[in-house]
Amino acid sequence: MPASLLEEFAFALLALLAIAGAFGTIYAKRVAHSMLYLIFCFLAVAGVFLLTGAELLAAIQILVYLGSVLLVVLFGVMLTRRQIQEEDFQ
């Protein structure tokens, strides 16, 4: 059944993206980079929700986690910076 094969392929892609995003979140050196990885992780999780037919959950995942929670994390990044120009950052 090619339709389900397509679904399995999409699931594999999304799962890989989610796992890679999660690892990237942990191992990134800058906080902003880990946030960027977290975006892809959340988007991939929303995609997995879509694949399982949970459309409401996918929309809420993007709306709440990507739209709001991540922006709050973003304020955390902004307010804890030591300096604006990161010239001495390794």
Partner: peptide
């Protein structure tokens, strides 16, 4: 409607 509003909130990031 929900999907639309969800996607509308990605661009600020």
């Amino acid at each position: 409607l929900l999907f639309l509003m969800a996607i509308f909130g990605i661009a600020p990031l």
